[in-house]
Amino acid sequence: MRLLTYHHHDRDRFGAVVDIDGTDRVVDLTDRFAGVDDLSALLSAGLVDQARQIASTAEPGVALDAVEFRRTLPRPGRIFCIGVNYGGRNAEYRDGQDEASKPSVFIRFASSFVGHGQALVRPPESEQLDYEGEIVAVIGVGGRRIPRQSAIDHLAGLTLGNEGTIRDWVRHAKFNVTQGKNWDDSGAIGPWLVTMDDIGDMGDIEAMRLTTHVNGELRQDDTPATMAFPLDYQIAYLSTFCTLEPGDVIFTGTPTGAGARFDPPRYLVPGDTVEVAVDGIGALHNHVRDE
């Protein structure tokens, strides 16, 4: 099932995307659950199975191309980001550091992300807006010290992200990337959340192919099978030091090929388009504009 947040008839809504004779249409779930105002609340209330039942029987509403996408989770919980995780990423760094024994983790704010089809914003303070295509995991069942062997059972589903970065601002202080990772509207998440019944198990996740295209040019291309710290390990590790809750988000890492690693660097400029795609999840499209 594909769950999304969208704008239609002067209101932000949430619903499920269903295929009707080859055309994607939306089942509006906005007023189906008492006290549930958005997709974030649906996850917190543990109502994904009920939403699936409604989506399978309700009359579809508008065509998907008639709505405006919003950030998939309007009120995500904590947003964890895993750095330098795909095969070959350590080679992008010039300090010759050894492979880390534990993942690099940093935090982002919800305000730094827009939805599918919306603009990534380059601020006037920097021309170094970069892209990072990622598979994004969303927690559906909370827990503390989650065993790795059952970690995937705690997922609501997967979506896609562009973990946009202002490169020169991640270097303002030693061991600190917060400033460069949290500019308003610098990244994206979407287009929808694909629930785990349509994803499969860890083997299916590791077989996925993640690509990022800028203006149609392939820049990133890899599979989660090359991750130093696979998704099930990430969930187990993060839940060791804090209780994961429904609606928490994990950006699982980006492959080689970000703009900063070209010589000279190839940062995003107004008018550029970025597509992050994974078969089985979808494609996240965004354009770039100046603030």
Rank of each mutant, 00 (worst) to 15 (best):
47 L>G: 06
252 T>Q: 05
29 L>M: 09
115 G>V: 11
114 V>W: 01
178 T>N: 13
37 D>Q: 03
121 V>T: 13
133 G>Q: 01
162 N>Y: 11
99 E>C: 06
20 I>Q: 09
168 D>T: 15
17 V>R: 00
45 A>R: 15
236 A>S: 10
181 K>C: 11
102 K>H: 14
16 A>Y: 12
239 S>G: 04
77 G>P: 04
117 G>T: 02
125 E>Q: 14
262 F>V: 04
56 S>C: 03
10 D>E: 13
251 F>H: 04
202 M>Y: 02
16 A>D: 11
234 Q>W: 10
19 D>A: 04
21 D>L: 06
7 H>C: 10
17 V>G: 01
141 V>A: 09
159 T>L: 07
126 S>R: 05
111 S>E: 13
128 Q>S: 14
144 R>C: 00
152 I>S: 03
270 P>W: 10
101 S>N: 13
281 I>V: 14
87 G>L: 03
70 R>F: 00
4 L>M: 14
181 K>Q: 11
152 I>T: 01
209 R>F: 02
226 T>E: 02
62 V>R: 07
52 R>F: 06
34 A>D: 14
120 L>S: 12
21 D>V: 06
131 Y>I: 03
244 L>R: 08
59 E>Y: 11
182 N>D: 08
176 N>T: 09
136 V>M: 09
197 D>S: 06
43 L>T: 07
67 V>N: 05
100 A>H: 09
246 P>S: 04
168 D>Q: 11
90 N>V: 14
158 L>C: 05
139 I>F: 08
26 V>Y: 01
162 N>G: 04
197 D>E: 14
59 E>A: 15
115 G>N: 10
72 T>I: 11
75 R>P: 01
48 V>E: 09
159 T>N: 04
165 T>D: 04
162 N>F: 09
137 A>N: 07
164 G>D: 15
41 A>M: 05
113 F>C: 04
120 L>C: 12
35 G>S: 02
273 T>F: 05
154 H>Y: 05
49 D>R: 10
122 R>G: 07
76 P>A: 05
195 T>C: 12
52 R>H: 12
79 I>R: 08
268 L>A: 11
228 A>G: 00
137 A>D: 04
160 L>A: 04
205 I>Q: 01
211 T>M: 13
29 L>R: 12
206 E>D: 12
210 L>Y: 08
210 L>M: 15
58 A>C: 01
4 L>Y: 07
143 G>Q: 03
282 G>M: 00
27 V>F: 07
230 P>H: 02
276 V>S: 06
254 T>L: 10
86 Y>S: 00
56 S>H: 09
42 L>F: 15
199 I>Q: 06
25 R>H: 08
115 G>F: 08
89 R>F: 10
175 F>D: 14
67 V>K: 05
276 V>M: 03
168 D>F: 13
167 R>L: 08
249 V>Y: 02
256 T>S: 10
17 V>M: 00
225 A>S: 01
275 E>Q: 06
115 G>H: 10
274 V>W: 10
283 A>P: 03
29 L>D: 06
